[in-house]
Amino acid sequence: MQGLTAHFGGITWAFVLDLFTDYGLFLVSALGLYVLMSAGQVSLGHAGMVGIASYSAAVLAVKFHVPFWLSLPLTGCIGMVAGMVYCYLLGWRLSGFYLAIGTFAFGEMMINIWLTSDYLGGAIGFSGIPLLARWPVLLIVLPPIFYALWRIEHSRIGLAFRAIRDNETVAGSMGINVARTKLMAWMIGGFITGLGGCLHAHRVTVITPTEFGIYTSVTMLLAILMGGLRTFWGTVLGAAVIYFGPWLTTTSEPRDRLMFYAALIVILMILRPQGLLASRAAR
């Protein structure tokens, strides 16, 4: 009991609020990836896409002084265009693991471009972004995203996404326009990711290229695989496991956290191979 008090005693209300805000921001980007994954578009470079949006938001805010509520939808549209580019270059040509590696390489390429660009601050990062994405913003942004995803899931498009994920050839022969549906998935996913990137930039206020690397991408991917691909609520739950799991396994030594957490991933994969919120047949 004493250990528990020592463990949770130092936690203040502001800290919990901060933690939940960070979780919400992470969730927005992860939901963008969920839309891609629900259409079978596995991306290992999703953080690269978040980075594109974050840098656009940063440039809009600092260089062009665009107000936050205008830059948010604008960044969403930039994310959508980025999604289209991803789709033209990679989504239509590659599938499965090749797509994962292609998106990963694209993300790394973007990171190296940001690293070498003086306009975007190079390796030191882009600073001076106003801190605007506090928790009330999330209460405004998240419900419409949930509603949109819920509607998509129960519509023709959602079924088309699922059909493409299960088998592209069969989906095509059933009259689904595979190329157009993929493009749609990339655009919707890109828009949500764009929102996530904008919020991220306005949350951390200094963005550096390396934070959009493979590690962040893998964390997002894990959140989705944890939750399973049956419904987007799986991602909400999976992101919570990924985000709060390390905090709950904290011991006196912070580095132990990641160790326990990695062991948890292996155990979960053995015990619940289909994800936390999915039926056995869904994968």
């Binding site: 948890l264 292996v266 053995i270």
Partner: peptide, 23 residues
């Protein structure tokens, strides 16, 4: 032989080893 899960599980194993050695 479930290839997606093996990818995730081996990634978890890698994270475990890396953080263990860091410790």
């Amino acid at each position: 032989g479930n290839w997606w899960n093996i990818k995730v599980a081996t990634l978890g194993a890698a994270m475990f080893l890396e953080n263990f050695v860091t410790r």
